[in-house]
Structures are given as structure tokens and as C-alpha cells.
């Protein structure tokens, strides 16, 4: 099967190019396996990967125009030639490796941890099954970046728009019954850019390899903000 892989080394001064490789496909082979075979024959190819099980979120790439995790993308499902590019909208460090520092900064900015103001109990802070269920579809995010780098609003305003991943994380803590910083969290998202650059394009929903729905989470934040302001 033929792969066309984006190659670029900014330090070399040469323009980016697509390089063709041929890989023998095995049953059950994932794109990550194919990239590892390519790398075995051409060790200059750079890409991130780690767990190989869709858990660590390291190997997000753009495959035939869609952001996916290479380790859980079966080669058998892909149209030939398989075009593999870096996640869009981020500066390329080399080949398929992009600079995700802005993405992580937005994640840090939403304070992705519980803020509990009351004195902590002796044991755990209890939740009812219903309260715990509100976190389903939110906590599973693995920070692969497939959603935010598929979002046109994040492409246009990467420094100021938080992006779907960080906003999903923001709602995950707003929705948590144990968190007591709702007002501060909502205040931190007010303004024309951080939250309200989302126009419900829903590329994030299409791209998320875990099947999560950042657009719905963003809508819940807006509704909560409206409720708090009345």
C-alpha cells in the first residue's frame, strides 16, 4: 500500500514535500505500525507515538484530510494513497511532529483540577451516581489534540480561543459536583475570544477519536454562563 507522508525540516531551509513509501499490509495493521515500518527503512522520518492503544494521545496525525490517532486507525479502512500530514494549524517542528505548547497552555488556563473551598472531609468527597454520571463523555479526553487542531476557530485565533479540548475540560470541572469555583471558571471564559469564538462548526466532534462531543460541552458552558448572569 502506498503512503504519501509530509516531510519538512524547518532547519534545512528546504520547502515541505510529500514523500512516497510503500508498505506491505498485514491483517489488523494500524497506521502507526505502517509508520514504524517506514521509519525502519528511513530513520529520518519523525513522528510521535507511545502506547499504541489509543490511550496516550501522542500520535495524532491528519490522515487523508481527517485528524486521527495513528495507533487505532486500521490501514484496511484507508483510501490509497494514504496521505499522512501533521495536525493542521500548528507549527511543524519536523515531519509529523508539531508544536503543541499553545494547546497545552489553553488546557492549563482552564485549571483542569478540582477547586474545593470548604474544609476537606476526612475521607473522599462523595457523589451520587447521578452526579458522577454527569462526567461521562467528559473525563475520557486523552489530550491528543485532534479536536482543537481540526477547529477553524482555533486556526484563526490560536492564542486567544481556548479551543474545543480545553473547553471540554472546563465543562468537565464545571459539571463536577465537588468543584466550588463555578463563578471564577465562568468569569475566566467570558469575553469575545476564549469561549465565544466557537461557532458550532463541529469539526471537533467529527475528529475526536474517543467519540466525545466538545460542541455540546461548549453549549452547556454558554447556557450555564447565561443562567449565572440572570
Amino acid at each position: 500500500m502506498r503512503l504519501e507522508i509530509y516531510r519538512y525540516d524547518p532547519e534545512s531551509g528546504a520547502a515541505p514535500r510529500m514523500q512516497s513509501y510503500t508498505v506491505e499490509i498485514r491483517p489488523g495493521m494500524m497506521l502507526r505500525d505502517a509508520l514504524l515500518e517506514v521509519k525502519a527503512g528511513d530513520e529520518t522520518l519523525a513522528f510521535r507515538h507511545s502506547c499504541g492503544e489509543g490511550v496516550c494521545g501522542s500520535d495524532g496525525v491528519n490522515v487523508n484530510g481527517r485528524n486521527r490517532l495513528a495507533c487505532i486507525t486500521p490501514m484496511a479502512e484507508l483510501r490509497e494513497p494514504v496521505q499522512v500530514r501533521p495536525l493542521p494549524g500548528r507549527p511543524v517542528i519536523r515531519d509529523l511532529v508539531v508544536d503543541m505548547s499553545t494547546f497545552y497552555r489553553h488546557y492549563r488556563e482552564v485549571k483542569p483540577y478540582l477547586e474545593h473551598r470548604d474544609p476537606l472531609p476526612e475521607q473522599e468527597i462523595r457523589q451520587s451516581p447521578e452526579e458522577r454520571a454527569r462526567l461521562d463523555g467528559l473525563y475520557e479526553c486523552i489530550l491528543c489534540g485532534c479536536c482543537s487542531t481540526a477547529c477553524p476557530s482555533f486556526w484563526w485565533n490560536p492564542e486567544r480561543f481556548r479551543g474545543p479540548q480545553a473547553l471540554l475540560a472546563a465543562w468537565r470541572f464545571l459539571a463536577d459536583s465537588r468543584d466550588q469555583a463555578t463563578a471564577e471558571r465562568l468569569e475566566a471564559l467570558e469575553g469575545p475570544y476564549r469561549l465565544f469564538r466557537c461557532h458550532s462548526i463541529m469539526n471537533c466532534v467529527d475528529a475526536c477519536p474517543k467519540g466525545l462531543n466538545p460542541t455540546a460541552a461548549i453549549a452547556r458552558i454558554k447556557a450555564e454562563m447565561l443562567k449565572e448572569s440572570i
Binding site: E190, G191, P192, Y193, M225, L226
Partner: peptide
């Protein structure tokens, strides 16, 4: 800018 172009106010209108 933020007060004049408040995200929530514009979105609500």
C-alpha cells in the same frame, strides 16, 4: 474592548 464586545452579551443578542 472586552466590555463593549462581551462574548455573552453578543451571543445572547
Amino acid at each position: 474592548m472586552t466590555r463593549l464586545a462581551s462574548g455573552l452579551r453578543a451571543w445572547t443578542w
